[in-house]
Amino acid sequence: MWEAGIQHIELEKGSKGLGFSILDYQDPIDPASTVIIIRSLVPGGIAEKDGRLLPGDRLMFVNDVNLENSSLEEAVEALKGAPSGTVRIGVAKPLP
């Protein structure tokens, strides 16, 4: 389960991407759907250096692409398709 509020994070995407990987996970509230979760951070990558994204965070959007009900493929496309420079990411943090 995740917090209702969405944290807005801006990262600078370079030639090596944003520095994290994702996975799809069965939604605990709606078993028929999936949620997109941050799986891991690349050591020394943009996301790890920034410090705000953590494994277990739920990915909600990338720039103007809503990922609340997306497939893993759609989420990967949104991340890979984001141009270099500032990328806006929304995440919901896990409940304590």
Rank of each mutant, 00 (worst) to 15 (best):
G51W: 00
K80N: 14
P83E: 06
G44A: 08
V42H: 15
G44Q: 09
S33G: 08
N69T: 14
L18T: 03
A78R: 05
S15E: 09
I46E: 12
I6Y: 12
I46Q: 12
S71T: 12
G19Y: 00
G5S: 12
K93P: 05
V42P: 01
I29V: 13
A32F: 11
S70K: 14
G45F: 02
S33L: 09
I38L: 06
A47F: 01
N69D: 10
S71M: 07
N69I: 09
V91A: 06
S40M: 13
M1V: 03
D30H: 07
D27R: 05
P83C: 06
F61H: 10
D57Y: 10
P96V: 04
I9E: 02
L23M: 11
L11K: 01
V65A: 12
M1H: 12
V76T: 09
A47W: 02
W2S: 12
V91R: 05
G90S: 09
S21I: 05
L72D: 02
E3M: 09
I38D: 01
E3Y: 06
I6M: 09
I36P: 14
F61G: 09
I46C: 06
P43F: 06
S71K: 10
K93S: 07
K49Y: 08
K93W: 02
V62Q: 00
S21C: 07
S21Q: 11
I22L: 15
E3C: 04
S15H: 05
P55N: 07
W2F: 08
D64G: 06
P31L: 05
Q26R: 11
S71A: 13
M1G: 07
K80S: 08
L72C: 13
S15F: 07
L95W: 06
N63E: 12
G19K: 01
S70D: 03
G19F: 01
L11S: 00
L72Q: 07
G17K: 03
G45T: 03
A82S: 08
S70R: 12
S71Y: 04
E3I: 11
A4F: 13
S71D: 14
K13L: 12
G19Q: 04
L59A: 00
G90Q: 05
E12Y: 13
S21R: 09
I37W: 03
I9R: 01
I29T: 09
S33P: 14
A47Y: 00
E74L: 14
V91C: 11
R58C: 02
V76Q: 15
K13N: 13
P83S: 12
E12H: 07
P96Q: 15
G14C: 13
I22G: 00
L95K: 12
F20N: 00
D24P: 14
S70H: 10
V62Y: 03
G5W: 05
S15V: 09
L53E: 00
N63Y: 00
Q26I: 08
D27K: 06
Y25G: 13
N69P: 02
V35I: 15
E77M: 07
V65N: 10
V91W: 03
I29D: 15
K13E: 04
Q7R: 07
E73I: 08
L95A: 10
I22P: 03
K49H: 10
P55K: 15
T34C: 09
Q7F: 06
S84P: 12
A78E: 06
G90D: 03
I29C: 11
P83Q: 05
M1R: 03
L59C: 02
I29Q: 12
G85A: 03
S21L: 05
G5Q: 09
T86K: 12
L18Q: 01
N69K: 12
S21N: 15
N66E: 11
R88K: 14
L79E: 02
Q7G: 04
E3G: 02
A32W: 06
P96K: 11
